[in-house]
């Protein structure tokens, strides 16, 4: 089943200016980095990788070659402005970025975007409502990694939405965190959600707590509080490892409705087995765009799909070329095509 978000035509002003400004800042960063690296006399320092390494003792036995003494010769080649080994990667980033930008532009210009219904996200409101009806709390676990992990950021995005619904329903939300920085970010997110729901007085920072950085110390606390307080709804959104099944099974034992989302593919089977709904991999990252319904955000999902289509085409072409190469190993056009394909993929 598909639902359609009809996007109204909007005049693009504010966002475009910000993107241009972002690009200018990017250039400034680059210039800053250059200035930071360049010596006072204007010369450019030598990168360790650019040094010419010569073995001191050529009579060194072969087994010692890996550890022979490298000597930096006084040659001073300038550091390249661009790491050419990563050209293919850069082109891919540019391609994905362009696909996303064009899709955002198309979405803003009023082109309708069809988004597959994601059951886990549709269930958020019901899950929060259930906690309100039962007079029990909502537990939100934002994973066990820090703010430098994009899954934690995606988890906090979901937290914003869940907290806003909880504020509207007057439900209590508990957020135990595994990192101090995540605690601070989660407090800001929940505070803003309560504000936007017009329930600023309902916000309590004490419900968003730091427990410990230790994985299983954190697990012990969360599982203990689940058994004692029996939350009606549990959300697990972020980066999880071995604790995923412990959380999900404990939640199942206390009869909580459980919604999980992670991009850790090794933990997905556990969540799928023990939770009511699971956001699998990319669905988790699509959640914020899906829930916002904003054209700009939904456009990025279309861009993502363009990238996926390109990858799919390359996989099919690669598989075909490999197969033909096995059948006819001396086929020059196929060898040439295979070589091009490897270059495109950066291999």
């Amino acid at each position: 089943m598909r639902i359609t978000h009809k996007i109204p035509r909007r005049i693009v002003t504010n966002q475009s200016c910000k993107r241009v400004a972002a690009f200018v800042f990017m250039l400034m960063c680059y210039a800053g980095a250059f200035a930071f690296e360049t010596r006072g006399d204007g010369s450019v320092p030598i990168a360790p990788t650019a040094r010419i390494v010569v073995a001191q003792n050529t009579s060194t036995p072969p087994q010692e070659s890996a550890t022979s003494t490298p000597v930096a010769v006084s040659a001073t080649p300038a550091r390249p402005l661009f790491n050419s080994e990563k050209t293919a990667l850069l082109l891919w980033i540019v391609f994905i970025g362009a696909a996303v930008t064009v899709s955002v532009w198309l979405a803003k210009s009023g082109r309708p975007i069809r988004i597959r219904r994601i059951a886990a996200l549709e269930a958020v409101d019901n899950a929060v409502g259930r906690a309100t009806e039962m007079g029990r709390s909502i537990l939100f676990v934002p994973g066990i990694q820090d703010m430098d992990n994009i899954q934690t950021v995606a988890g906090l995005t979901m937290l914003g939405r869940v907290a806003k619904t909880a504020a509207e329903y007057d439900a209590t939300i508990e957020v135990p965190t595994c990192r101090s920085l995540v605690m601070e970010a989660a407090r800001d997110t929940v505070r803003a959600s309560y504000l936007s729901a017009g329930r600023a007085d309902g916000f309590s920072a004490d419900r968003i707590t730091y427990i410990t950085d230790d994985q299983f110390g954190y697990v012990a606390h969360v599982v203990g509080s689940m058994v004692r307080e029996k939350p009606a709804t549990c959300f697990y959104m972020g980066c999880f490892f071995a604790e995923s099944l412990i959380f999900a099974e404990t939640g199942n034992a206390i009869g909580a409705i459980q919604i999980a989302g992670t991009a850790e593919s090794s933990q997905l089977p556990f969540f799928v087995a023990a939770c009511d709904y699971t956001l699998i991999g990319e669905e988790f990252f699509a959640a914020s765009a899906y829930l916002s319904g904003e054209p700009a955000q939904l456009g990025t999902l279309r861009g993502q799909d363009v990238g996926k289509f390109a990858v799919g085409v390359l996989i099919v072409l690669g598989a075909l070329a490999s197969t033909i190469l096995i059948v006819t190993p001396n086929s020059a056009p196929v060898v040439w095509f295979f070589d091009i394909l490897q270059k495109v993929l950066g291999g």
């Binding site: 890996a66 550890t67 003494t69 490298p70 992990n149 071995a242």
Partner: peptide, 20 residues
């Protein structure tokens, strides 16, 4: 480690890993 400048000077890297 006297002559070790960067990780590529190790011909073999071994990781015993439990996650991230």
């Amino acid at each position: 480690l006297k002559d070790v400048k960067m990780v590529s000077q190790f011909p073999l890297l071994i990781s015993v890993s439990a996650g991230y």
